[in-house]
């Protein structure tokens, strides 16, 4: 009996969190006049909404831009994060303490304070309307470094000493000993960074005005408010579906890692 109630509530939750997405995807495939109905079975299927959006905004290009920007950001955050994380965890060098304090300090600064100056820096460097402008300010992440550091602290010192005795350089240790061990933390930092970067919209809205360089969330947001949808719902839902599908697919593949990485980020952040 009690079990039934629990299942009932959980199923209610499933409808609450799942149904809107199903409605969105089905709605994007319905003829325009059917969309506002609650039903998930349209009178006929139609790709019209998709052809309408794709005819109005360069979504394929935006998709490529987003992939490029997110991958570059993720690769950079993982690469540099692991380097600094390793140095902080296992090496003794002048300024190590200071660096660690600076990184913690960076995490505490609300982004509101640096946002406008960062934009102005982009203007001064001439990086507005460029991939560099989109990627540069998120190329490294203090939080990523902290996660790497914590993970590397737990790597047994003996392993590292053994490699040193074998004549490995410190960089060699990082590449041959540490990286092969760090799949979990790379996955955590990588997924978090990729997701944040893919969904980021404020920064692209600031630095990119040129349509051919816009990222997917940015162009979809501007499409929504800019009136290009001509008050039709179908094209909006189609745009939203195309925007969320890549992340939903990635989520389906790495569901456990997504949840665990978000949980770990919450606990430590």
């Amino acid at each position: 009996m009690r079990k039934t109630i629990v299942y009932g509530v959980l199923a209610g939750g499933a409808i609450l969190f799942g149904y809107p997405f199903v409605w969105m995807m089905v709605g994007s495939l319905k003829p325009e006049l059917d969309i506002s109905s609650l039903s998930l079975l349209p009178s006929s299927w139609s790709l019209h909404s998709y052809t309408a959006v794709l005819g109005k905004i360069p979504l394929a290009r935006a998709f490529l831009n987003s992939v490029l920007v997110s991958l570059a950001t993720t690769a950079s955050v993982v690469l540099f994060g692991s380097m600094v994380g390793y140095a902080l965890a296992k090496l003794n060098f002048i300024g190590r303490k200071l660096l660690y304090v600076l990184i913690l300090f960076t995490m505490m600064i609300p982004f509101q304070i640096t946002l406008i100056p960062q934009y102005i820096l982009m203007v001064k460097l001439g990086w507005t309307d460029s991939y560099l402008g989109l990627v540069a300010p998120s190329m490294m992440s203090a939080f990523g470094i902290i996660l790497f550091r914590q993970f590397f602290m737990a790597v047994p010192q003996a392993l590292i000493e053994a490699a040193r005795i074998d004549g490995c350089s410190e960089v060699g240790i990082l590449v041959r000993v540490i990286w092969p061990l760090s799949r979990p933390v790379v996955l955590t930092v990588g997924l978090l960074t990729f997701m944040t970067s893919w969904n980021e919209v404020l920064w692209p809205m600031m630095v990119v005005r040129e349509r051919s360089l816009m990222t997917m969330p940015q162009i979809v947001a501007l499409f929504t408010i800019g009136g290009e949808a001509e008050s039709q719902l179908g094209p909006l839902l189609a745009a939203a579906t195309m925007l969320s599908l890549p992340v939903i697919v990635a989520y389906a593949l790495f569901q456990r890692q997504f949840i665990e990485s978000m949980a770990s980020s919450g606990v430590k952040g």
């Binding site: 460097l125 001439g126 990086w127 460029s130 560099l132 540069a136």
Partner: peptide, 11 residues
């Protein structure tokens, strides 16, 4: 280096 180059080029 790329970054500097890019800014020079745009100049």
């Amino acid at each position: 280096g790329c970054a500097v180059l890019a800014s020079l080029l745009s100049g």
